[in-house]
Every structure is written in structure tokens, then in C-alpha cells.
Amino acid sequence: MQVLNSPTQATSGYATQEPFLVIDNLSKVYPTATGDFVVLDGISLAVNEGEFVCVIGHSGCGKSTLLDMVAGFRQPTEGEVRLQTQTISEPGPDRMVVFQNYSLLPWLTAYENIYLGVNSVFPNKPEAAKKHIVMEHLEMVGLADVANKKPSALSGGMKQRVCIARALALRPKVLILDEPFGALDPITREELQEELLKIWQDHQITVLMITHDIDEALFLSDRVVMMTNGPAAKIGEVMQVPFARPRDRARMMEDPKFYELRNEALDFLYHRYAHDDT
């Protein structure tokens, strides 16, 4: 982690005051044939190091667009994203992404998929160390025994585990997940939520995650960012999730506070910002 830090911020006194990740008055406009289409309008959010933040909002409101700008895949029309005071201008392995679709390369095995990233990001490490990193992370997600299988031979949950392992093998500062468990069955989804939570705790990593699932957001995150509907979506409300960690799903479900927060989020999504499909 330390190696990736740029020299400027070691000397900058401001770095200690500014939060870890700052989304600063971010707007995104897509030019279209019928005129400009404003997706996001003035999004500001500060995320602390090690925080787990979930973003929820209706389909098409611009959640992926927002996280793509944090990842560096798209450029904001206005405003900027700063990670440790550095303005983000392009994608990089310090902000690893677990994509909405499984983005494993189908012609490489699980091992090779992870190795590709490790080899690219740590080119100077000795071969044995790279191998060790790959296997360590496959073990972390419990998939060491399918290291030599191609993605087509893996279940959806296994593929997403490999994606998470690939992301974490590069020791990112921020892990960005775009609806990572959306395509999974409920049981696998809960398993993966628990695994992710454990990994997050062990790695002390900052996580930004998009989800459609309010329960998932409440179980995982420190804060839930609720977005208003597009076009020109904003942050409508930021909800603090106070449950003690390490969290236990059953215990959380017994807590009346859980239902209070859940109802608040549901009210936000389905009454105040109900999706009118016209």
C-alpha cells in the first residue's frame, strides 16, 4: 500500500485533513442526438478509509456512471474524484472493480485470470511470490481446488468469488463492486455477502458497492447512499447503519432498528422517489 502512495501527499499537510476518498460536486452529462442528457447532477460524498458504503437507487439513475467515474473509466463533466487528494483521471489497480457481469476472461483458467493482473501490477516480484499471491487469494475465497478450471466450468457464485480474489490480489485502496451478487441465487448471495464482509474486515479495505437489495446494503455497509431518480440524479439521503461489527445476520434481523432503517429506505425508494415507468 505504501509503495503506491505518491510522494506529494506525504509532504502535503492537507492530506491528513481531507477524507480518504472525496467525490466532489460531480456531474455527468451524456451528449445525445436529442440534446444533452444529464445523468448525475452535483454529487458530493466523502468516504473514510476502511469504510463500507453501499449505493442504492432505481435502475438507470446513474449508479454505474458514478462508480465508473471513481474507477476512472469515465470522465466527469464537472467536478472531480480524489483518492488521497490525487485527482482520478484513469483506471488503475489501486481502485479495483468487480463488474456487474462476470468479467473473467473465458479462455484463461481462474488461476490465470488472477495471475494476469498480479503479473501486470507487480511485474518485478519474483515468480514464486506472484504464484503465492494468486494461490493465497484463491484460498481466501475457498477456490484453490478449482484454480485450473476455466470460468465456463464454474458456477455464478464461484465466478464472482474469482473476480473478488482477482481484485484483492492487487491490494487496491478501494474496492468497487457494481451489483456483484445481482445474478446469484439467494443462498449463494448470502454466502458471498458474509465472505465479502469477512474479507473487508481482514483487509481493512475501503468498499464502494452498488446494490438493488436493501437488506444487503444494511447488512454490509456503514452508510447507505440513496440516490434520487434520473435524469439529473442527486444523493437523496445518506443513511448511517449503526449495527455493531462483526455483524450477525440473524441478530441484525431481530433488531427493531433494522426494520426502522429498512422501512425508511423502502419509503425513500418506493414513495418519495417511486419509479414511474412511463
Binding site: A71, G72, F73, E90, P91, G92, P93, R95, M96, V97, F99, N101, S103, L105, L108, L116, G117, S120, V121, L170
Partner: peptide
Amino acid sequence: DYNNVARVLRLSKPEYFFKI
């Protein structure tokens, strides 16, 4: 998605060519 993987991993040109 594959191109995004290449960008985030900052794959070198030859690596992008042969692996993706």
C-alpha cells in the same frame, strides 16, 4: 468488460494483444 479489465489492470500492449 474485457477492455475495462485491461484498462484497470493497466495491461501492456503485448499482453492486451495476446491475452484479450
